[in-house]
């Protein structure tokens, strides 16, 4: 059965997007990318490391012919900064895909809804394929879709927190209302979190910290792949309704009754 993810006309077999930040070694990064079988990888357009100006950039580490690069605007506190970072990222990577992040608050790293919408408006007009990171707000999701974003990316819980899915009800509403893919981004800690949102009907997830900071990132990448696949299959299979009382698994009527015969 064909069950592919389509974003802005491009088709993907994997519904697991990954990030490149926070990996301890390049080997870990490469292993997690390979084992997770991700096809969409987000990268911060890193600025020069003045302590080590000869350090390779992430752009040198992977064969980008095999992946959809998704530059992000990490580090942008305002819409204007995000627009500039996006325009620069397009020139760095040659890709017009952009994950919009407008995050003024360093403590909880929560996205600014107004700044995100403003940046998305400008970037859609400028020809970008926009994937905005956002709070799990169904009204904002509608607005972002209306102005032409390619996906919406509601958060599960704060970035890097590993707290899992604290926004399940909102995500469910967003899934119900959206006609663009819903990608749950941020906060997922373990594959069952990914599975949970996929069961709710999310189209994909984006996982960075939970893989990058795992003791064995390659293995965790593979585990997330399986979690996403399991959740997706469960969604497609159609779950049973939740009811209050038990419903016995074994039939209780018309069953053969053992008869004791005495001799």
């Amino acid at each position: 059965m064909d069950d592919q993810l389509i974003i802005a006309g491009k088709t993907f077999n994997s519904r697991l997007m990954t990030g490149t930040g926070k990996h301890k070694t390049v080997g870990d990064l490469v292993a997690s990318v390979e084992k997770s079988q991700t096809e969409i990888i987000t990268v911060a357009i890193r600025r020069l490391n003045l302590d080590n100006p000869n350090e390779k950039t992430i752009l040198d580490e992977l064969d980008w012919d095999n992946y959809q690069i998704l530059p992000n605007t990490a580090g942008s506190k305002t819409a204007d900064e995000a627009v500039f970072t996006a325009q620069l990222a397009r020139e760095v990577t040659g890709s017009n895909w952009i994950k919009i992040e407008v995050i003024p608050d360093p403590k909880y790293l929560l996205p600014d809804p107004i700044g995100t919408l403003e940046a998305a408006q400008k970037l859609v007009k400028d020809g970008f394929v926009c994937l905005p990171y956002m709070g799990a707000d169904p009204e904002l999701a509608k607005r972002l879709e209306d102005i032409g974003c390619a996906t919406v990316m509601p958060l599960g819980s704060p970035i890097g927190s590993g707290r899992g899915v604290l926004t399940a009800e909102e995500i469910q509403i967003i899934v119900e209302q959206s006609s663009v893919p819903v990608v749950v981004d941020a906060g997922l800690g373990v594959p069952s979190d990914a599975s949970t949102v996929m069961e709710l009907g999310a189209d994909a997830v984006l996982v960075n910290t939970a893989i990058a900071q795992a003791t064995n990132p390659g293995l965790m990448g593979e585990a997330f792949k399986l979690g996403v696949q399991a959740g997706r299959k469960a969604y497609l299979a159609g779950r049973i309704p939740v009811i209050d009382k038990a419903s016995a698994s074994s039939p209780t009527e018309d069953v053969a009754v053992a008869v004791t015969t005495s001799s």
């Binding site: 890193r46 600025r47 020069l48 490391n49 003045l50 100006p53 350090e55 950039t57 620069l88 760095v92």
Partner: peptide, 8 residues
């Protein structure tokens, strides 16, 4: 310019 371009 160094910060933005220097790595490239």
């Amino acid at each position: 310019i160094v910060e933005l371009i220097g790595v490239h």
